[in-house]
Amino acid sequence: MTNAARTGQTLLIVASTMLFAAFTSALVARRAGGDFGDTPLPVWLWASAPLALAASWAVERGFTRSAAAAGAALTASQLFYLGSLHIAQVDQAFRSVFVGAHAAHAAAGACALLLHGRSARLFWHFAGGLWIYVLALLGVWT
């Protein structure tokens, strides 16, 4: 990977971090409204966390196609969860936003792994870590 590609990926990660930081700020501020429900996250969604970690492990071992497949499976599980949410309830609306935005990142990361191989691993590691963060945040705050 060239220095420019590494720097570019790092900057993309900064931009994505700002997007999720903004969503997080909105969630924290909006939660004070008192109209949040208390539905727990489904257990199977928590099980997608190891999928993200497994993809990171695979890409570090050079199994980029397997990593991309794990990324695609993660995206599919996120899209399936999105379909089950009732967006008129604000807590579930926030879940939709976080999971939907992350699904876009996971899909982009999986495509990048397929197209660029290990060169895209920095972004994939970020996407995996971000999913752990999103799960923890939604589990605690929504």
């Binding site: 900057l11 900064v14 931009a15 994505s16 971090t17 700002m18 997007l19 930081a21 903004a22 969503f23 909105a26 909006r30 109209d35 967006i87 008129a88 604000v90 609306a93 939709s96 936003v97 935005a101």
Partner: peptide, 25 residues
């Protein structure tokens, strides 16, 4: 720009959802 535009994008997405899917952000 790198630090600012992502935040505007977040606000725009939430506002689009409020308008079209009756969310209450």
């Amino acid at each position: 720009s790198l630090f600012a535009f992502g935040v505007l994008l977040a606000g725009g997405i939430l506002l689009l959802l409020d308008r079209n899917l009756n969310t209450a952000f």
